[in-house]
Design a protein around this nucleic acid. Sequence first.
DNA 1: GCCAACGTTGGC
DNA 2: GCCAACGTTGGC
Length: 157
Amino acid sequence: MQYWLMKSEPEVFSMDDLSKVPREPWDGVRNYQARNFMKSMKKGDLAFFYHSNCKPPGIAGLMTIAKTAYPDYTAWDPNSPYFDEKSSEENPRWFMVDVKYKKRFKELITLDELKQEKKLADLPLVRKGNRLSIMPVTAQQWDYILSLSSFLPPKPS
DNA sequence: GCCAACGTTGGC
DNA sequence: GCCAACGTTGGC
């Protein structure tokens, strides 16, 4: 079992959006390092859902990797903003995984909070200039970040 | 909207 | 294989 952090701009796709669908293809990743991390994901891995480029940025909740990496077909669609003419069905350049909603935090754990935690100093997210949109999280970091959170109570059924 | 930091591209 | 130019990310 591995742990991850994955960024999305909430105006494009948010934790709330994820909670409304059974699963979601994590498309549009166009960075080799991030792609390689996705390729090493296994079904059942857990990931933090990070809201980026918003006020305030931070971790919104948890999701599960529901499907391992497969070709990102948005790269083949000339009408997609993620189109890349160098990726073909015969030789796909970009990959994606499917993710599934798990839990939403009662409150966002803000980037500001995370930066203040000495125990998270090695987390790429808080390091200056790091722009990786997908990064590994160690088990220790994962547990520590979870200890900072509280969850929304389950919906009454 | 600014811009630092970083990744990618392509000429040489 | 170097590196300048350019584009993007994403916090502020």
